[in-house]
Design a protein around this nucleic acid. Structure first.
Lengths: 385, 385
DNA sequence: CCAATTAAACTCGTCCCACGAGCATAAGGT
DNA sequence: ACCTTATGCTCGTGGGACGAGTTTAATTGG
């Protein structure tokens, strides 16, 4: 592989990044955003067409003047495979440079044994590899657990032991980007969802336990080994309560179905998610009180994290949305009361996530596209054309 | 001003960034790190000499081969003014591109009225502006309070109302970068201190209250408006206790001199910092118990933040250092107990900050140098030579 | 229906940076 | 002295970004 001249594909990479982040963007719009002269825009798009990275289609005319073109992924350009591993099922999508899903599918797990599930994912990677050949450049995987250097450290909902995820791509040699599902759904919100345009966004999702992520300029703060974002295990709760994670007083324990059961003096549920949904459907006062307590803990914690991070916006996913909706005023009170005074005049809005079920897949796709549109990746691709 | 050709000074900017981050680096080392050919290195350094950004001095020979040169700031190159505003005094330093302090001074406040103090800072800016003329490119200011868009929102130790800091540079028109002192001392640690080389670092400092910052790849997470890092106001503490910040249960209240006084059942001290120092000098068991309680709260909270952010390293500043030293085992127990299980095999080290008194000034200088060595800034300078 | 207007694409020539190849230089080692 | 080694210097080439000028394709208005 010949070494690449520095800066050679820098502008091309910038252009592709815009295309991937704003699907349907026109050549003229990209040139304006990057402050490219029209001659440079002509030249760079020609080069990108030549190496099968882009195609152009006539754009609907917008008033006077010569019409511009919409930039789209080349039909023979590079693609990424996004995978979303969930408790009962998994999904996959082949994504082109402009963020379009070339194909996607969804399957239920037949067996939940880690061996079986991983081998199914591996088969999907190999199928895509056969179908797309060298066009397949990267695989991005969302998984419901703590991830550290492409290893799944703990996955409470799947009840799996520590696991190396790179087996999924090992035989094909394609680079793998594995990430926590909550982190990736946060990325999706920050890129194209409720937090679009935010410089700093905080995303929190309640399912079994609480996950989340801090996203700065579209990039998640993943920490030293990718395990960042475990906001559920911050000691906002009762210090005498032990958490399965090993720590005490975790916020987690005050938010999800297990907390509702405790407040209702019922037995700890096997499926805290379904239990929480059932409690939300109840109309009795005891249930309402339990929900209000949980929502207060949620609002207080969010306020604390707002103090810590000063985000532009907070987005909520999973059970956090119906929980808040069920006790709107409790939430509002707890949130405002927990903020530092100077935040109260314009508190960061707390919005519902817009990507909901396909957030992790969208986020995985977004990070895969970051990889695809990086300068080294573009240069390598161009050299091979 | 002529528009700058894109990428024109990219490599030059990369070189200067290395020089500013690793003072005393040689030309050959820079070329290796950037994978520059020797011809490119020759060319880029020549260009940088021509526009008065660098000079070269013979480097001490390191074994065989032709000796290389040390890259230094040009004696007539651009400089930044760093300012560190503190409770009882302020400091200033003129910093050259290679991070060297060209001059520095320290003064006590005669009056602590905000008008007087700001006017003194303004005079110092104007003095530097007269002395260095167009060489002075940016002013960076560290201040002990919450800062938002170059406005000081609240400064508890100074007891000032909301204040516009840009008055300090207004008459000279030089860009101002204002930041919280704890944030900036964290930057200093992450760049050249105890957290050097860390991808993700968490810095916490106890003085009156607790401040801190999360630093990712040397860049502090400052949030939407620069107020990020208020870890003291996260609800790790007793929810019934009210904090002057407006929230309740702030971690703050469990850590500093006020907490010690509460545990010792003494009156709330006027100067919590001095009070804490006095308690640390005491040898009675009541004092030791109070310190242990505070240190436990510190360790537990740090563990929670480690769960949330997964840093490579945690650095402590201010009173946190002697507090921990006074109850080492309490700290270690609380820290380990608060971590998620998978962190316990290799918990992030908790180190004492190495920059201590001049952390904020060093951090302010570091961010100022980032500004100076940015490509646009270099290009602008070069165009004016 | 045919200019006039407008926005954007295209062409050409220039500038300048990065780099490979080859040579020169200054140390240490034998 | 002469070799080895690491580095700096010179020269020629290639390529991307861009300014100036031209062309093209739409809307607008008579």
């Amino acid at each position: 592989m010949t070494p690449v001249r520095r800066g050679q594909w820098q502008t091309a990479s910038d252009v592709l990044m815009r295309v991937s982040r704003q699907p349907g963007i026109t050549r003229a719009a990209v040139a304006r955003e990057l402050r490219l002269s029209t001659s440079s825009a002509t030249e760079v798009t020609a080069r990108l067409r030549d190496v099968r990275l882009l195609t152009e289609a006539p754009a609907p005319s917008q008033g006077r003047g010569r019409p511009t073109t919409v930039l789209r992924a080349h039909p023979k350009g590079p693609v990424a495979l996004g995978l979303d591993l969930r408790q009962g099922s998994w999904r996959s999508a082949v994504v082109a440079l402009d963020g379009s899903f070339v194909e996607q599918q969804s399957r239920r797990h037949r067996s939940r044994r880690s061996q079986v599930v991983l081998s199914n994912l591996q088969k999907e990677v190999e199928r895509a590899h056969r179908q797309y050949g060298a066009r397949l450049r990267v695989v991005s995987l969302a998984a419901p657990g703590t991830i550290r250097d492409n290893r799944l450290m703990q996955a409470p909902t799947l009840d799996w032991a520590e696991l190396d995820l790179e087996t999924v791509t090992a035989r094909t040699g394609i680079p793998l980007l594995a990430g926590n599902d909550a982190t990736l759904s946060g990325v999706a919100e920050a890129r194209t969802g409720a937090a679009a345009g935010a410089g700093t966004a905080l995303h929190l999702i309640v399912e079994v336990g609480l996950g989340g992520t801090l996203i700065i300029d579209g990039v998640p703060a993943q920490g030293a080994s990718g395990a960042g974002g475990e906001y559920g295990h911050v000691p906002f709760g009762d210090r005498t309560r032990f958490c399965p994670c090993g720590a005490r007083g975790c916020w987690d324990l005050d938010i999800d179905g297990r907390a509702l059961a405790r407040h209702l003096k019922e037995a700890a549920p096997d499926d805290p998610y379904a239990y929480a949904e059932a409690v939300l459907r109840r109309t009795d006062r005891a249930a309402a009180r339990a929900v209000a307590k949980v929502v207060t803990a949620l609002g207080t914690g969010i306020a604390g994290l707002v103090n810590a991070h000063d985000p532009d916006v907070v987005t909520l996913g999973g059970l956090a949305i119906p929980l808040r909706a069920a006790a709107e005023t409790s939430f509002e009170q707890a949130y405002l009361a927990g903020l530092m005074t100077f935040h109260r005049s314009t508190p960061p809005p707390v919005l519902s996530a817009t990507h909901q079920p396909d957030g992790p897949l969208r986020g995985a796709a977004a990070l895969a596209l970051d990889h695809l549109t990086s300068e080294p990746s573009i240069a390598t691709w161009a050299a091979s054309q």
